[in-house]
Design a protein around this nucleic acid. Structure first.
Lengths: 162, 162
DNA sequence: TATTGTTATACTCTATAACTATA
DNA sequence: TATAGTTATAGAGTATAACAATA
């Protein structure tokens, strides 16, 4: 069987690893490790700040679509991050209804720190890997994730993800 | 830079993919796709049933530790799954305080179906990959996840993950 | 005294509904 | 009429506290 249909057993292994990574306890542990020591940001507001850093200054509605959260939740979390001094609200010059969310200098620093820390965590999870092995894995993993979550990079275009 | 420190850029790519996979919208989409059409089981009770299938018949406390949920939540979700006919409660023969949770035949069938479906989803995310490429990726991914979430297979030994 | 299962309670996340202002 | 932002409200997940029964 490992000769005839090796892909099946390997797919099971991949599926199991995905399940492990998504498991609440492990997810939370990863987020907590990443955010440890940071004030003004937590597991729930982090995706908002991170998403804003990824797509750049944008309205709450745009950002909400990107991270898959409701508009109302996004604006509430944005208020928390604003209170923590990590982002600002500015009226849009083009649309008087819209508000532009933008990272402050402190917000930028925060994101830089968190990105670096996550990178370190990842590198620690690849002990002794050769650069070529890391490169191949990065390519493959990226492709798998893109295919798994659908074509869009991060958010989804479906109306109600709930 | 891609010559000097290729590992850094690749680590960033891996980190980004992890972030994408863990993003709420994508996580939910994956769970919903997996559970589509199944009644009596949802995003929240699925880890309970899946965990029970993985570790076999066990008490609610044991299971709770494994999946990183509180005892009280686990027992409540177990009640739902019991009402849906997917698991049974039986008094433990060794400990009169304990209750043994166990999958019913229908629960077993349910898990089999879900595992097969997840496998299919994974295979679809590896279009045209050679068996050796799949095998290498499965090994690497498994190792990365194990290292990322800590030594324990699924749950964590820390007291309060929250 | 500690642990198991369970329920009661409170807290938080999240979405729907509703309101105001603008396109 | 539709859309942006926001707030009010309600529903659901989750943890802490508390209880009875047993180790």
């Amino acid at each position: 069987m490992s000769q005839d249909k090796p892909a099946h057993a390997d797919a099971q292994r991949i599926a199991s690893a995905i399940g492990t990574l998504l498991l609440r306890a492990n997810r939370m542990h990863l987020y907590d490790t990443l955010l440890e020591g940071h004030t003004g940001i937590d597991r729930w507001t982090y995706p908002v700040l991170s998403g804003l850093a990824r797509i750049g200054p944008s309205s709450a509605s745009e950002l909400a679509d990107q991270i898959g959260l409701d508009r109302t939740v996004t604006t509430r979390y944005a208020s928390r991050l604003q209170a923590a001094g990590l982002l600002t609200r500015q009226p849009s010059p083009h649309d008087l209804r819209a508000t532009v969310l933008q990272l402050t200098a402190e917000g930028e620093r925060c994101i830089q720190t968190l990105r670096a820390r996550l990178n370190d965590l990842v590198l620690e999870a690849l002990p002794g890997w050769s650069p070529s092995r890391i490169h191949a894995f990065a390519q493959d993993f990226d492709q798998v994730v893109q295919n798994l979550v659908g074509t869009p990079a991060a958010g989804d275009d479906e109306p109600a993800e709930t």
